[in-house]
Nucleic acid binder design. Structure first.
Length: 207
DNA sequence: ACATTAAGTGATT
DNA sequence: AATCACTTAATGT
């Protein structure tokens, strides 16, 4: 159990977690949850990170968000409460340690533990606001801003100013073409905000 | 040295 | 902003 949870959860809940939740380690690239699968348990990231994305009929992928340590997936809650199949795909971005909570205890915990409820509500509220933000960005067609926040997000997640991705990979995640990303990155480089290399991008300022 | 893959660029829609 | 066509640069064999 991480120190963080010790500070936000009450002792009784920590004891329950110890008893009911299981530890699980996954390797980079492992699919934790596929689209259409039913959610049977709630994963909480302890170490590492998990990428949540959506794919359309043609198999194009759209990045929704990342789950970082001490966070959990908001979509999971909304799906699992009524046993709906998952709308999203969860893939381990790196080697990741999870704490998985069976959904059978959800109802009970929500009423029994105020700190659990606020934890759940906080992650849902956080993601919802974030999705609204990206919806705004898409609606107003500002791909350059989307790219910038994507890069910021990335470097925060990896804790490094160096991002090891090709232009193509970035384009795939933002559901656009490589040429567009190349051009936007070039512009950012000319503005002195980035340095471009083969297969990696170095962020200079906090943009 | 050659083939392969990533990135840069102009023109077009 | 997307696509095409093409060039240039980096990397692997």
């Amino acid at each position: 159990m991480t120190d963080y949870f010790k500070t936000i959860f009450e002792p009784a809940l920590l004891a329950e977690l110890e008893k009911k939740a299981k530890r699980q380690s996954v390797k980079a690239g492992d699919v934790i949850l596929g689209i259409g699968q039913t959610v049977k348990q709630i994963p909480i990231v302890v170490k590492g990170s998990v990428k949540i994305s959506r794919t359309d009929e043609e198999g194009r992928e759209l990045l929704l968000y990342y789950i970082n340590p001490n966070e959990t997936c908001a979509m999971t809650f909304t799906c699992c409460m009524q046993q709906y199949p998952s709308e999203i795909k969860a893939v381990a971005e790196e080697d990741t340690d999870l704490l998985v909570v069976p959904i059978s205890v959800m109802d009970e915990w929500l009423v029994k533990f105020p700190t659990w409820k606020s934890f759940v509500m906080k992650t849902i509220r956080g993601r919802f606001n974030e999705l609204l933000k990206t919806l705004d960005q898409v609606a107003f067609q500002k791909l350059d801003e989307r790219l910038v926040s994507y890069l910021k997000e990335k470097s925060k997640a990896t804790g490094s100013a160096l991002i090891n991705l090709s232009h193509q990979q970035i384009a795939d995640e933002l559901a656009t073409s490589r040429v567009v990303i190349s051009r936007l990155l070039k512009k950012l480089e000319n503005d002195g905000k980035l340095l471009l290399y083969r297969n990696q991008v170095k962020i200079l300022r906090d943009l």
